[in-house]
């Protein structure tokens, strides 16, 4: 029992440090990342926002797209392993680091691309809002 409790407590400590310690903010927006770009160069961080439509370019080497939050935009390059729901307009969280943080147009090098299906609550037809949902159902 004591051993079990010790294991539980150690794991709890690890989880608290790992999960809540430094990153209570799970991701930073493009605006935040750019504002802190000279200080967070080569820090591992998460960038979250929307994939700007019309910016996704896939090639043999990987993928390049722009993540925006309505105010700022950051270009992201990553390898091509993408979740199936990845696409223009989709909310994403990318993990990696900001390269060329001191330049005018830094590029975010992502090793992981996560899809955030935030505001759409899984209706049977794909639209995020009720209006479009109805339209899609009529199709």
């Amino acid at each position: 029992m004591l051993a079990t409790l010790a294991v539980v407590l150690v794991t709890l400590a690890v989880v608290l440090v790992r999960g809540l310690g430094s990153n209570l903010v799970y991701y930073a927006t493009p605006t935040e990342v750019l504002a802190a770009r000279s200080s967070n160069a080569h820090d591992r961080l998460r960038l979250g926002g929307q994939v700007v439509p019309g910016t996704v370019v896939k090639s043999a080497h990987g993928v390049r797209f722009v993540v925006g939050d309505g105010t700022s935009r950051v270009t992201v390059v990553g390898d091509a392993r993408l979740p199936t729901m990845f696409g223009p307009g989709q909310g994403v969280v990318v993990e990696g680091y900001l390269a060329g943080g001191r330049t005018l147009h830094p590029v975010f090098r992502a090793d992981t691309v996560l899809v955030k299906h935030g505001s759409d609550y899984r209706p049977p037809t794909e639209a995020p809002s009720v209006g479009t949902r109805r339209a899609a159902r009529a199709r």
């Binding site: 989880v15 790992r18 999960g19 809540l20 990153n23 209570l24 799970y26 392993r81 993408l82 979740p83 199936t84 729901m85 990845f86 992981t112 691309v113 996560l114 899809v115 955030k116 299906h117």
Partner: peptide
């Protein structure tokens, strides 16, 4: 769907 088995998201943590 997300592309990860686990991530240190607040809800998961």
């Amino acid at each position: 769907i997300w592309g990860a088995w686990w991530t240190w998201d607040p809800r998961l943590t």
